[in-house]
Write a protein that binds this DNA or RNA. Structure first.
Lengths: 213, 213
DNA sequence: TTCAGTTATGCCACTGAGTGGCATAAGCGT
DNA sequence: ACGCTTATGCCACTCAGTGGCATAACTGAA
């Protein structure tokens, strides 16, 4: 929609090293664990100075969480351009997230996210970094909602709760998707979309659910 | 209920240095910012070796988030001993959290949490650490629910969503409480309890809320 | 009080993440 | 071929966090 077809050689080169860093990092971390790989090693493999690494990513955790960050960035963009429709806020967000998900269909995004999540499960600092980015996305989403629709003014906590619910549903969907992917079939983004719909649909039930039943 | 009245001199000493580290850390961080204070400085003020610091806390962020961790620990204990009652899961959790909150009424807990949250607002790594601890608490809560009530077996996502909703409500309550506390009156835990009740009560409305209304 | 046994602490050296400064090379427009 | 911009490389540095080992402090019993 907005991107140029060929964003100049310099840009492409930068993007390529960035991608190489992400892919190599996921590979090495998966092989020997997050703590078992130093940045110096990673940089040596990719043939890049450590200084360059930190111009592309904010931290060691950041490079391994990059795939998910792409999704959230796309989500905010979708939320920015989507039509109100009078839908419930949660469903509005859900549709924006689904649209963002469809944009990720290309290349090996699914594979990368899968590796990233598996890593995050056994690496607290990665999990923390991911959650922090979710929080930042929440803030961004609320800002958009406030600006576009005038929501969240004063002390109305409902928009915030609605966005948090959506993200909770996403976490559930992602967790189930990652677990399922352990078996034979390589996981695909459509599967994740289905799970997200299910999780959002389960929200009302989980609100009223009681311990016996 | 379970604690001993005087847990031996050694224990008390340990607790004292721990508390001194927390208080001094909050003080110094508030004064000069999280990044503006090195652990060596902190340890020098408290007259403790850096090695000792890391026997009490897992990281620099950890010491500043200790007050909130106490709350979550108490929450899990309450959840462990609370009666089912046939209440909705979210309300069960809410009551456990309220009970935990009442346990925090003593001393300057409110003041410490306030400082901690203010710090976390402008220190991403602290926010991340806090979120990660919430996530760990969620896992712990789900484990308790599964063990005590057989919930969450198979692929039922509802318990997980319910717990996440509770935590989202808590975040809202906490955020509002911290903002309000900026004025004159020093904030108290009862105020936080009220806000938590309100936030939980707002959950159904936020689920159905639409953009025009 | 003394004497073991336990446990917290201090000290020291070390790894590795992350930063700042500055020179250089690579892409870019003319 | 020429400057101009921008990414990169290199170097030295700070500081968080860890491991090992000696020592001091507490504890419980003789």
């Amino acid at each position: 929609m907005t991107a140029a077809p060929t964003p100049s050689l310099r840009e492409r080169k930068k993007l390529r090293t960035r991608q190489a860093l992400i892919d190599t990092a996921l590979e090495l971390f998966t092989e020997r664990g997050f703590g078992g790989v130093t940045l110096d090693e990673l940089c040596e493999v990719v043939e890049v100075s450590k200084r360059t690494f930190f111009r592309n990513f904010t931290s060691k955790e950041d490079v391994a969480m990059a795939p998910e960050q792409d999704l959230w960035r796309a989500f905010l963009e979708e939320l920015e351009t989507t039509a109100p429709d009078g839908l419930p806020l949660v469903e509005l967000g859900r549709d924006a997230l689904l649209a963002a998900l469809e944009r990720m269909a290309d290349e090996g995004w699914a594979r990368r996210v899968l590796l990233s999540r598996r890593l995050a499960e056994r690496t607290p600092s990665m999990a923390a970094h991911g959650l922090q980015f979710c929080e930042a996305t929440t803030q961004g989403a609320l800002e958009i909602l406030r600006r576009r629709f005038g929501l969240g003014g004063g002390d109305d906590v409902r928009p915030r709760l609605a966005v948090d619910m959506l993200i909770a549903a996403h976490h559930c969907a992602m967790a189930g998707w990652v677990d399922q992917a352990g078996g034979a079939a390589p996981p695909a983004t459509p599967d994740l979309a289905v799970r997200l719909r299910e999780a959002v649909a389960a929200l009302p039930g989980s609100l009223t659910m009681s311990v016996e039943g």
